[in-house]
Design a protein around this nucleic acid. Structure first.
Length: 433
RNA sequence: GGAGAGAUGGCCGAGCGGUUUAAGGCGCUCCCCUGCUAAGGGAGUAUGGGGUAUCCCCAUCGAGGGUUCGAAUCCCUCUCUCUCCGCCA
């Protein structure tokens, strides 16, 4: 949610920005109409409440003196009815305004380039150079099948399309990736490891901005029946960021830095026919996620730090990548600024997203009511929240398979992972049944 | 799953229909006193919102409804915590 005080004061300017940056049409007339009504209603309600409180007090004192208060009591009944009516009207206006405000996307950071879609993203830098293969490079699906360690067919038998089954060394390599990333971020980058629920209440999704959705598509998986208010997390961002929901964090604890490994569940509604084969786009995948809860003055700088942490992993895995700043049209609803890390995919000869690092500034914090106590004033202020994938595990696995293959279909295991693989240097047919 | 007990400010804890404007204590901040330390005295100490804004008002006692002129207090529903029994990784 954006700052309402700011919105009310500079409504024309902010409406213009929302339209220019996001193509979001804010109904200024309607909003102002509702605001005026809300304000007058609120004054009426509070006035009636004030009268009620005073009258009740006087009545109480008279009763204590032993006076008969039945007539006065009866006379006050009408005020109670009027109050209830006014309260109901106020509530209706408030929820209408609330729904409107929840639908407004975040304002973008000035450094975000203008643009419509991913074609307009700004490439910041490259690292590494894509391998030039002296043979025809295979995609990860054929490589995995040849190794008998990747099985989409049996996965489909269990759960349908967009699920995977891994065997043997490939399954172990996925586990090694998770371990390596968690260990690196905790030992080298100062994050605390955190284990969180994979099922969360809907309110958590409002907090981080996945809900409300105005598209038809429902991106998340929800449970039915007795637990129907629970949803499978689409990313660890949701449970981890919601840890500070409603809290006032002591100043000296900032920044809070958490790293979590979780599976992620996405319906992928709206991406029918896109990336239907292999590990690229699945309903269930593993991810190691970084989350920071920071002082407002630090978030801009800490976004760069998070990107650095994700880049470090890619470098250690010896994978060529580039860093892009998402343009205005490609930046997510809640984000003020997002960097994507894109890893080279030899079979497609393009860079594909493997990490997304965002600064949400106070947008999520306002929804979450996540604050810290300002040292100077002693008053609570909204924190800033950031997160970054570091990395998407399934895509890292895929990238390793494709970038580190040789002409015999063996796959080189990056040296940083070998300690997690009993010093094994390659994936080959030995690791499967 | 069965039986019972709870949820009050940063913390402990009283209140069980109207002198509560949430007692009292602890902690914290500032001031005073005491030549250090300890002890003592005084003041302050939630969050959100509104207004005729150095002041006033409204809301919040786990959450949501209800009863009442008036609810922390009574009733209903839900959530969570604790104790005992059962079951279980």
């Amino acid at each position: 949610m954006i700052d309402l005080q700011q919105l009310r004061q500079n409504i024309e300017m902010i409406a213009a920005r929302l339209y220019k940056e996001r193509g979001f049409k804010l109904d200024v007339i309607e909003m102002q109409r509702l605001e005026v009504q809300r304000k007058t209603r609120q004054i009426i309600v509070q006035d009636l409440q004030h009268k009620r409180n005073k009258a009740a007090k006087v009545l109480g004192q008279e009763k204590a003196k032993g006076l008969d208060i039945r007539d006065q009591s009866k006379a006050l009944k009408q005020d109670g009815v009027a109050l209830k009516v006014a309260q109901t009207e106020l509530q209706a206006l408030q929820s209408e305004l609330e729904a409107l405000y929840l639908s407004i996307p975040n304002l973008l950071h000035p450094s975000v380039p203008n643009g419509k879609n991913s074609n307009d993203n700004r490439v910041e830098r490259h690292w590494g150079t894509p391998n030039i293969f002296t043979f025809t490079a295979k995609d990860h699906l054929s490589l995995g099948r040849a190794l008998k360690q990747l099985d989409m067919e049996r996965a489909a038998k269990l759960s349908g399309a967009r699920f995977s089954v891994l065997y043997g060394d490939l399954a172990r390599l996925q586990r090694a990736l998770i371990q390596f990333m968690l260990n690196t971020h905790t030992a080298n980058h100062g994050y605390q490891e955190v284990y969180v629920p994979y099922l969360v209440k809907k309110t958590c999704l409002y907090g981080t901005g996945q809900l409300p959705k105005f598209k038809e598509d429902d991106e998340e998986f929800s449970l039915a029946g007795a637990y129907c208010d629970l949803t499978l997390i689409p990313t660890a961002e949701v449970p981890v960021t919601n840890l500070v929901c409603g809290e006032i964090i002591p100043f000296e604890q900032l920044p809070l830095k958490w790293v979590a490994h979780t599976p992620c569940f996405r319906s992928e509604a709206g991406s029918y026919g896109k990336d239907v084969h292999g590990l690229l786009r699945m309903h269930q995948f593993e991810k190691v996620e970084l989350v920071q809860i920071t002082h407002p003055d630090q978030s801009e700088h800490l976004l760069e730090e998070i990107v650095g942490h994700a880049e470090f992993i890619l470098q250690q895995l010896e994978l060529p990548y580039r860093v892009v700043t998402l343009c205005s049209g490609d930046t997510g609803f809640s984000s003020a600024k997002t960097y994507d890390l894109e890893v080279w995919i030899p079979s497609q000869k393009i860079y594909r997203e493997i990490s997304s690092c965002s600064n949400f500034e106070d947008f999520q914090a306002r929804r979450l009511k996540a604050r810290f106590r300002d040292q100077a004033t002693g008053k609570p202020r909204l924190v800033h929240t950031l997160n970054g994938s570091a990395l998407a595990i399934s895509r890292a696995l895929l990238a390793i398979m494709e970038n580190h293959q040789d002409e015999n279909g063996r796959i080189y295991i990056p040296s940083v992972l070998q300690p997690y693989m009993n010093q094994q240097s390659h994936l080959d047919n030995q690791g499967s049944k």
